[in-house]
Each structure stands twice: as C-alpha cells, then as structure tokens.
Amino acid sequence: MPVVQTIPSRRGVSLLGIGCGIGAGALWGLVFLAPELAGMFRPLELTIGRYIAYGLIALIAVAPRLRRLVHHIGGPGLIALVWLSLAGNTVYYFLLSAAVQMGGIAMTSLIIGFLPVAVTIIGSREHDAVPLIRLMPSLLLCAGGGLCIGWQAVGQNSFDQLIGMACATGALISWTAYAVGNARWLVRFHAISAQDWNLLIGVMTGAQALCLVPVAMVMGVAHHAGADWTRLLIVSGGVALLASIAGNALWNRASRLLPLTLVGQMILFETLFALLYGFLWEARWPTMAEVGAFGLLVASITACLAAHRGRGGA
C-alpha cells in the first residue's frame, strides 16, 4: 500500500505550469465542438465512442508498465481510478454532450466556467494557500461572467435551454469533484508520472465505456449512414488523442506545478477557447452578454495571477 503523504505547499506561480494550463484549455475546448460535429449521435453514443478510443490508446501506451503501476497504487489507487474516471470523464462528458446539444456551446462552456469558483474555494483551505479574501475579486469576476450567459439562456425561455443548463450544472459538479480529487491523488502518488496517471485513468475510463455498450444497445441504436459512423470514429479518435491524452497530460503537469487555488483558474482557458471555437463553428459574432462574459473571465484570470504573484512566484 502506498504511503499517503501530506500535500505540500505549491505557492509559486510557475510559468511552465501556467503554460501547461493554457495548453490543456486549448485542447479541452475542442471537446465542446464534438457534440456538434457528430450531432446525429446521442450523448451516450458520443461518450462511448470517445472513451473506448481513449482507453485503447491509453492501454497501448501504458501496457509495458501496467502491472508495475497497478501494484504500486494498490487497492486504494484502483478505487480512486474508478471514481475519478466516472467524475472526470464518463459522467462529465455525457452531461456535457447533452448540454451542448440542448443548450448550445456558448451556454454550456460558460456554465462550466464556474468550475474555478468551486475549485478555488476548496483549494483555499489547503495549508499555506492564498487567503480566500485575496482571491475574492477573481471569484466575483468569474461568477459575473457565468451569470451573464446564464441570464441570457434563461431569458430565451426555452425548455431545451433549461434542460441544457441543468445538464451543464451537473457536469460542473462532476468535474469539480474530479479536479480536486485528481490533484490530491497526483500528490499522493508522486513517484508516478503525470502522463502514466493519465493513461491509467484512460484504461479505467475505456473499461467503463465498454460497460455502457449494452446499455446503448438496449436503448436502441438509430440507423446511420456509413459516412456518419466514419465521422463518429474520426471525432472520437481526435478528441481522445488531443483532449484526453495530450490535454489531460498537460493538466496533470499543471496540477503538480501550481497551487490548487491557481489550478482552478486555469480551467477558465477551456471556457475561453470553447467560446472561440463555438463562435467560429456557428459563424457568428458573440452577443453583448457573451462579450461581457468573455471579458469578465479574462479579468478573473488576471486577478488570480496577481493575487498569487503577491506571494512570491517561481
């Protein structure tokens, strides 16, 4: 059984950590496009496709070290992999896909933009963390950005929009649990590289996706043309490789280099890039509410960085 270590202080503002956070956000933002690119498939089918691809890629990459890694993490680590895979991948992506298809990319991405508020508040309880009062301007700006687009969605008075908001909120809760739990387990298993931990989660997520195949069959698979299945294969493989393999690896690296209060703010880059991709995909200019939300989110990141620099950065 691995030794559980006390979470060390990660006070400094690491430029490499910030760069990894930005890179992860840019790749994760592509996830919001997937339900639109393969919109003829249901959220469950999109989830299964993405995570079977993720699991296969991860298994091939980690196979030579798999037995040693499983022995190292032991039973507690395996249990952690199960719930982290559910919270951060399977449940999260199913809810996110449903939210995008029912509420649109902009609404979904900006509700997910509340993630930094939850993660930062939790992270402020860590030993030697930046005091919550110093992070309050950043949190208020972030919340203001989410409220801008949330008010716009409610104002449309659409049942699909409201259901989409509910799914996006569920995805927000699910991924908050993952972000906090994953950061803590990365510290506990410090001897395992961030990429190997990501691959282990990938293998577990792939196994969960396989378990969902019978569920999808019971629900019935709609008839699709061959070109549709080809598109699903390409989208699933692309998202798995770019977002799940490369994006998660960058995120895990950032989680080890930055304090949790700052890691939370890095999630905003996913929101910002998702908004940009969404506007390009929909070939439209943002509304005034979306422009306001975008500006508030950028200001939130800037304020959070300033609060951490005040502690002395690396």
Rank of each mutant, 00 (worst) to 15 (best):
S9D: 15
F273S: 12
N248H: 15
L96Q: 14
R125N: 10
L280Q: 09
G103K: 13
G312L: 07
D228G: 04
T169H: 03
R188V: 13
L260G: 09
L275N: 08
V263N: 07
L275T: 12
G264K: 00
R11V: 09
G237H: 12
L44M: 05
S97E: 03
R184E: 05
P76E: 07
G88H: 00
M136L: 15
L135G: 01
A106R: 07
G113H: 00
V31K: 09
V3T: 15
Q156I: 05
P131V: 00
G12F: 09
D196P: 12
C211L: 12
F279E: 11
I111P: 09
I234E: 08
F279P: 06
T205N: 06
G292Y: 04
P286I: 00
A314S: 14
M217F: 07
G103A: 15
A225Y: 11
R188I: 14
V13L: 15
A293D: 06
F94I: 09
S85V: 08
V82M: 04
H72V: 14
A299T: 05
S236K: 06
C211V: 10
L139N: 02
F32G: 11
G23R: 13
G25K: 05
S236A: 13
I60P: 13
F279K: 05
I163P: 13
I267V: 11
Y54Q: 08
L296A: 07
C167P: 13
A98V: 08
A98E: 11
A254G: 10
I57S: 06
Y93F: 12
Y178A: 05
M107L: 10
A38L: 06
N248R: 12
T176L: 03
H127Y: 10
W285T: 11
L232R: 02
V91Q: 11
L115K: 00
I234Y: 08
A314E: 14
G77A: 02
L37K: 08
A87T: 15
S9H: 14
F189C: 10
R10P: 07
T47H: 03
H308K: 07
L69M: 08
Y93W: 11
L69K: 10
T271A: 02
W83Y: 15
L258W: 01
L16I: 15
V119K: 03
V298E: 06
H308L: 05
M40A: 15
H127A: 14
C304M: 13
V13Y: 15
A106M: 12
P35G: 06
V218I: 06
H190A: 12
R256G: 03
S97K: 02
A153G: 11
L260H: 03
L258C: 04
L162K: 13
M204Y: 07
A171G: 14
L258Y: 04
A98H: 12
G39L: 03
I245W: 12
L162A: 15
A26F: 13
Y93L: 08
V291H: 06
G150D: 01
H72S: 14
L140M: 06
R184C: 01
W83V: 12
S158H: 09
G146W: 00
W251A: 10
T90R: 04
M1F: 09
L110K: 02
N252E: 07
G145W: 00
G21C: 00
V203W: 04
V203Y: 02
A249I: 09
G206C: 02
W281Y: 14
A243I: 04
W281F: 11
A63Q: 14
T176I: 05
P2Y: 04
